[in-house]
Write a protein that binds this DNA or RNA. Structure first.
Lengths: 226, 226
DNA sequence: TAATACAAACTTGTATACAAGTCAAGAGAT
DNA sequence: ATCTCTTGACTTGTATACAAGTTTGTATTA
């Protein structure tokens, strides 16, 4: 487990949740790894309570398996969940961007434009981490513009299954293309052009195809055998 | 709060979660009502810990609002969330039943047939409660057949917002029509007819339209004022 | 009367103690 | 050597104690 800095503004519970989640996505908590509430609690410098609450939440999202009185494990990567994530993203992102075409206010569009400008800025300096953050934020903003923020929270939760695979594959999605896609999405929303919006979202999602066969060969111990 | 019987098989946490959720849906815990972890804990006969974990989870689903050191309240009915639930159900149910047309096994179909037969049985005895349970189970089985069980869990969570409105409106959806709809859905899946499936799901969902204006006039204290 | 101060009774957040179950290592008997 | 039993160190589940903050009612004072 990798240490994560705690913000002053967050409660112990929020910190524990963020730290554990980030470690699962980054595979610093490895699929299949045994974890202990006490161990994580002392590592993070908080008590069992906030750690336990976080683990319960991640258990509900099928990211941690709890065996009472025996132990808890980071869930192995299960193609079932990865495919559900891909399915959900495809169905929802399209429906939501179409909705955003109808509902986006000038303020929403201004915010999206600022985000894309920042993406272009960090593209020049090859700041992949920043672009990753802005990428997540961009998609969230579309959900907000479509008045679907709660749904976005659900999307984020299930997407962790996919993000984990992305980490393993060190998915070589060209940032250039991603940023360009976002610009096109933005224009589609500005033009209220649902057809174009749907088209570019589909193309965008297709960029993230992962060769699971390859990964399974490289990291067999991380995968659920079905 | 109405007492809920505890099953032998469930943990304190599962019991607390189920009891609180059922009370929120049935409006026995009223929108806007002040609740206390201690009060609920002693009412249910468990300690604060499992109650607290449940409240955290419901807080995440925007069904309970927590004000640290001040108190927690059952969330007022917010049309924002109700509309998100309706949107999600429409988008997902259609996509998922189409998927089920491709993926349903003979076993899945047999299970659906048994469920519909039971619905018809209870229709004769006007057992609305049983039909309600079988209804929920029927839709869940379609998600399972489409290999989208995780997504169904998310659907169920957000649907609580809608279920609460249904309770208030004592929505006079004719059970006869619901059961008939389910039979048609089942046939569409058996025939792998996506067009028919999509059509009947849309018609089915339209039966649940609620006149929010009316409700707002009758129960103004239950609604969020935006 | 009205304003202020204060104490008591609440709230949730966090830490810790205890209960109950699992599992593995090791002693001892066969 | 092998089987059996036991013990102890773990696990999570639950209960409780304490910390920190808010609110409310009630004195007390101007």
């Amino acid at each position: 487990m990798r240490p994560i800095e705690r913000y002053n503004s967050e409660t112990a519970r929020e910190y524990a949740m963020r730290a554990i989640t980030e470690n699962i996505i980054s595979i610093d908590l490895e699929p299949g790894q045994l974890i202990s509430e006490n161990e994580i609690a002392s590592f993070l410098g908080v008590s069992r309570t906030p750690v336990r609450e976080s683990i319960q939440e991640l258990n509900k999202a099928a990211l941690i398996a709890i065996y009472p009185q025996r132990g808890s494990y980071v869930s192995l990567i299960d193609s079932k969940y990865v495919e559900e994530a891909v399915f959900l993203r495809k169905v929802l992102d399209i429906a939501v961007i179409e909705e955003a075409c109808d509902l986006a206010t000038p303020e929403d569009i201004a915010a999206l434009e600022e985000n894309v400008a920042l993406q272009e800025f960090y593209l020049k300096s090859n700041n992949t981490k920043k672009i990753f953050e802005l990428d997540n934020e961009f998609h969230r903003m579309i959900y907000v513009a479509a008045k679907k923020e709660t749904i976005h929270n659900m999307r984020r939760t299930i997407m962790i299954h996919f993000d984990r695979v992305r980490t393993l594959s060190m998915l070589a999605v060209k940032d250039t293309k991603i940023v360009a896609d976002h610009g096109i999405m933005l224009n589609a929303i500005k033009d209220k052009d649902k057809t174009k919006a749907k088209e570019i979202v589909e193309k965008h999602l297709d960029r993230y195809r992962v060769d699971q066969e390859e990964l399974l060969k490289t990291y067999p111990q991380y995968f659920e055998t079905n």
